[in-house]
Amino acid sequence: MRKRNGFKLLAGAVLGVALVCGAFGTHAAIEGTPRAGAPHYLGLFGASIRPNDGAIFVVGAKCLVMVSTDKGKSWVQLPIRVRPGGPLFQDYDLYSIAFAPDGKTGVIVGEAGTALNTDDGGATWKKVNTGTTKTLLKVYVDGQNVVAVGADGAILRSTDGGTSWQMEKCPLDITLFDVTFTDPNTAWAAGEFHTILKSADGGQSWTIATGGHTENFEIGPYFTINFIDPQHAIAAGLAGELATSDDGGQTWKTSSLPEQVGTYTVAYDPTAKQIWTAGSGGRAFVQGADGKWQPAPRATFNDLTDIAFAGTEGVMVGLNGTILVSDDAGEKWQAVQ
């Protein structure tokens, strides 16, 4: 099955990854432990393609942060420290990673209120104090403005690239699974009870855009929300439930995927102009220009947790160390072994 890589034996060996030149300058060299892929026994939860140069960053269980600067062929695991103690104590799960458009500022969030930030394009990460122990499930970085959401109504905001944080008030005591921005002021979050929240002040204050019926336990969550453009949005949740908006989030219509599959991530591929969903059991669907959902060829049976696209490059990650990469805008996906 999966190849277990022996690189752990070389732990401590330091590799200077080639300097990568981007349109806006040079990223710092990334140092860490070389790896062929992610360990099969760790789940991966977040993926991000660094703007400018296409370096792929993935984050996962037990402080796993890996970078590939060659489209997934080889990886470097970064040393991450979030708890006092030796390497075996670095066991918090990291759930989301995001970069600002400049590719310099980036934030990672995770279990127990964990957050790390970088100002050198992800070469080095610094643990920052968020003032909470609530699990942070998703982060969005819009320049220096950063919003993270998570369990039990956690909404955290930073205006200095993730260095200092303040807790914002959530109108409902629900878990929020995803957050996104359509412009520097307008932010959206998705969560339990088919709830979508909106902020018009860059994430400071939030109102219920739709859902919020917390008394009805038969209503499931939306795990993910994404805006294709300022007008068109899509959210997805349990059993293939979808919510779409064509009017900039004013009204939402429910629909569903062809199959009742738990859907954990929705992404827009700007090159092929297709919307992707991915989720439980490795099931992914693509919506073409005709608006019809087609199942994508199944590349894994593991739950898929995140998708990212940039140019023709695409990456999907999932449980059990799953990484799929595409260099043709999602035509074909190649598993990283």
Binding site: A61, D93, Y95, F177, P221, L238, G262, Y264, G318, L319
Partner: peptide, 13 residues
Amino acid sequence: FHYGFPKYLAIPE
């Protein structure tokens, strides 16, 4: 317990 959401494949605390 958390809707089968993979990010909750974590230590229950």
